[in-house]
Design a protein around this nucleic acid. Structure first.
Lengths: 331, 331
DNA sequence: TTGTAGGCGTTATCAA
DNA sequence: TTGATAACGCCTACAA
């Protein structure tokens, strides 16, 4: 069933059918009704491939995440999809993993599909401290389609970023812990990504301003996994009175370690996670966590995406918002 | 840059370029090399819309989940995407929510995109006990594209289901608890979906076979939310010595209630969740849970999807696998 | 207000 | 081994 069939059945030309389909005001009411009735009766819908061929768009956005099983990414996608659907876009979702080669491959895959724009979720796409993950392939991709980065920053033409002041969030939390009297704060991080790096900078800055030397032993790079962290802390015999983790999972690992060791939380030990994910409410005591405002970041991103796709040229390339600290029982 | 540009630059016809592109063996080695060089140099790739227009396929699968922020769905999508990409398919992901009208709307949206097949994740798509969610729209959609259901069963032409023996899993667990001496088992469920219903049947069946009457007070329909459940149990003053929940979230709610009340878990109370999600390892004590084998269900589904898309006609319409019980500290 | 015809970029058939 | 051409289904500028 195509536009010719409808035209024939209605006794009009395909141009008229097309006009009816697009609500053109240059069609008489009677023909419009006649054609609409036939369209409805046959449940006819235009072929998106043919439409796409002409317009070079299928109203589809490509979204890339490293891992959709990660709470943060899932929440982000959930928010993005809802907004995009409301604007008439569909979402192709790719899961690239964290490996540089795979990330590039998945981005190329999306580009081949002629999506209208690309959204990269997570600071893993914004390069890393140690330069093992460069961002050239993203700059290149931006030559073809506008790219929007959630929770990471890359400067470049046709690249739009939305991120949170992670450095400041950690700085503030660290300062508050110091003010409270904590002196040996353990910093747990799972990556050397843009965001992780900035969190660390905020942490170290706060210590320095309080004339405390960051202790290298108390800055630990590990996996974001509950048991990996608790096992690791069990092995090393570290002395610390507070924990800041760059993801809730690691904070829970520290909590497990503390409870097993008989430490009182938060009396003997403050523990603060990051992302304010749903697992914060699962543990006992429940986890205090820095909320990085997924939904807000997503809505700011989509606002600008729509503007860019509408051809506006004064769309800001970088927007930053503040995190919240959500107090629960571990601090 | 299109196939005409390449043809012109190579001094051949577009037909020859197309042949080179598809590795036809009816092209001389020399022309093949000449054309390939020009294709590479210009980084030319065929327009997928034009290809789709001819073949009526863009090698894309539509996947519908009620909520991607749900651990089970996220794991499922993650597994499905990885497999599909390996077969050269992309995934459009839609999040429909649990509302019947929205589910139907999202399914229609996918159908309009001319995807090659549809995968529905979650038994919410398989109708409900109380018939408020009928499945007619799915049967209808199956008239257009093959439909694959993960974790739910609908019988119909062009519909392929993969599910777990949930009834048996709950039956076995309930029987084991009874054998251990538990007499007042609380059953927590969050929906009246196909799967939830079968879990309940397994639960009641096991009680009956042990000559225990299921107590209506101990079968609770609630939200799958930690605090909703713990608050609810705090309000009602129920007497129970074991808990089986149809999702880990509710089991954690029961655990929170128990710990607050000073009950010893598992000595005074066994608690068993469902889905074996990552939150099982977050709580203390860690949650025993029924593992419904997401990855395996997904790989069985994709195997058959590929076969169906290859035109095979003897593909089984329904496959069932067994769950595992993963013992942790709450039982 | 309506219709005709050309273009979008492929693939495939048939002829050379 | 290669090329010309129709077909896929829609949109739209231009003509009537």
């Amino acid at each position: 069933m195509n536009i010719y069939d409808i035209a024939e059945e209605a006794g009009v030309s395909i141009a008229t059918v097309s006009r009816v389909l697009h609500n053109s005001d240059k069609v008489s009411k009677s023909t419009k009704e006649k054609v609409m009735a036939i369209i409805d009766r046959n449940d006819y819908r235009p072929n998106v491939f043919a439409q796409g061929l002409g317009s070079d768009s299928m109203h589809t956005i490509g979204i890339l995440v490293p891992d959709i099983a990660d709470q943060y990414m899932a929440s982000a996608f959930s928010a993005l999809e809802k907004l995009l659907v409301s604007y008439g876009y569909d979402c192709i979702l790719g899961c690239s993993g964290y490996d540089a080669v795979e990330k590039e491959k998945h981005l190329k895959l999306l580009l081949e599909k002629r999506i209208d724009a690309i959204i990269l979720v997570g600071s893993t796409y914004a390069g890393s401290e140690d330069e093992t993950h460069n961002t050239d392939y993203i700059l290149e991709a931006a030559g073809e389609k506008p790219i929007f980065i959630i929770n990471g920053i890359i400067e470049g033409k046709n690249i739009y970023c939305t991120a949170t002041y992670d450095e400041k969030a950690v700085y503030d939390v660290t300062s508050a812990l110091v003010k409270k009297g904590r002196r040996k704060i353990l910093f747990l991080t799972d990556s050397r990504s843009y965001a992780a790096n900035h969190k660390k900078i905020g942490f170290e800055q706060a210590l320095k301003e309080a004339s405390l030397m960051p202790d290298p032993e108390l800055i630990i790079h590990t996996q974001n996994n509950v048991h990996t962290v608790s096992d690791l802390l069990n092995e090393r015999d570290l002395d610390f009175d507070a924990v800041i983790a760059t993801d809730d999972g690691m904070a829970i690992g520290a909590l497990k370690y503390a409870l097993k060791k008989g430490l009182r939380v938060p009396e003997d030990l403050d523990i603060i996670g990051y992302n304010n994910s749903s697992i914060c409410e699962v543990s006992a005591p429940e986890l205090t966590s820095i909320d990085n405002k997924v939904e807000k970041v997503c809505s700011i991103t989509i606002d600008r995406l729509i503007r860019v796709l509408n051809g506006e040229t004064d769309v800001p390339s970088c927007e930053m918002i503040h995190c919240d600290l959500v107090h629960r029982e571990t601090s």
